[in-house]
Design a protein around this nucleic acid. Sequence first.
DNA 1: GCCGTTTTCGGCCCGACTGTTTTCAGTCG
Length: 518
Amino acid sequence: MITNADIAKMLSQTADLLEIKGENPFKVRAYRNAARLVENSSKDFNKLVKEGFDLTKLPGIGNDLSTYIKEIVTTGKFSKLEELKKEIPAGLVDMLSIEGLGPKRIKQIYDAFHITSLEELKKYAENGELAKLPGFGPKLIEKILKGVRQLKKAGIRFLWAEVEEIAEDLREYLLKFPGVEIVEIAGSYRRKKETVGDLDILVIAEDYMKVSEYFIKYPKVKEVHSAGLTRSTVFLENDLQIDLRAVSKESYGAALHYFTGSKAHNIEVRKLAIEKGLKVNEYGVYKGAKKIAGKSEEEVYKAVGLCFIEPELRENRGEIEACINNSLPNLVKLEDIKGDLNIDESLIDEAVKLGYKYVGIKNKKIKRKDIKVFSIKEVEVGKIKEDKDVDFLVGIVNENNTLNEVLDAIEKVTFLRFYRDIKAKKEVNLDFDLIFKEMAKNGVILEIISRPNNLISEVLIKKAIESGVKISIVSTAKNKNELKFIKYGINQARRGWAERKDIINTRNSREIKKFLQI
DNA sequence: GCCGTTTTCGGCCCGACTGTTTTCAGTCG
């Protein structure tokens, strides 16, 4: 079965190939936008097509792309992509991930030498042939050679939780510079995305043009990539890329909005601005030459006719429409959490200290006066046996389970957990429309594991909520430190548009008992 | 390739930095 991710991948590959071919950049963008739309959609396109839904009703999908998506869903192939692959060697696509090489230069190289692999590119860079092309100076050649060597590292992403410490350390370092008023980590870090590719740091300072010089002296910097007066980029020892942007106080809101992204969200906001005859950039909102907003994010949104949108929602997944319709979610907060339904038995005292009203522990019944202790049992879907000695069964779905096994489990368990390993790119791939529908019908709760590498995707969380499924956020803590994992689960739930009412462990123990009919 | 009640053609977000030029194209975010 073709998944949304498969469709998105094909459209995105097509975009890459069209770009190298030298097609109209806006056409390329149309393909990329469509790829993003499909990938981020909580609707299953396979299903939409089979139900005869008119895809051209979706923003950014016209007659052509609608036909193409239908072709992909029904045949599993995209003939246009197959044609392009015959025409353009795969090696050229690899070159796109080399720093400093974009479609124009790759085309230029290909037209001149008909090079089709990275090995050949390296050879031509070294033997001086490449330098004969107009615009290819010594520094660019050096950059290309370096890019060929480092290609494998391209595209590495870090788990949000992995960069948390370094982000805070950098914030403290920058705050030490005289005159620095605000340091904000923007970008995907601020949007709490499960993985981040780099850190975008925004600095507000009196003498903001001097901060950059101080920034590149940060002790963990391995390499300075670029250093301007208002923008600089460095790489740390662990290859994490850090972008610094320094602006004045008057532009704080506009800059924060701009650098928080996502890119897709920003483009939508700018489109709205244009409709109102306004222009938005990182310095402010302008009516002609006059600046009408920029000090705060609220001001920026207001100027273009929108309400404030939480960073976690800024992915162009309907948040702008929701704002206009006054239907934005009131996102769940860490403080709303009243208990953790999966911790180690040894942590009950710590849970009490955190103010939790209840916890869940495995395979054991314990009675305490200061906290309600539920007993849970984790069982693999497909091997479920009833167990009267525990309060709840948690069904664990792994990659190999079939849809039927999951549907069968839904009739027997209270919670369902779906296996995912973000770094290994492994996850359960089943018909979630059907699964969530059945879960909602049977009152089965979706478990969010808060471990940073095992978080269920926010797209699925959103879909579950839309289907009426309730959610439990658990830490699965084995030690005191891991109890704090709950915040990563909250981050992901917020990205999935979860409100307090969607999360069962925001309720007190009596409500939980009633809810679960114990 | 998409889009539209000022448009069915002619736009499409916007600016910084680099490296190469001698005023700017390409890349990037």
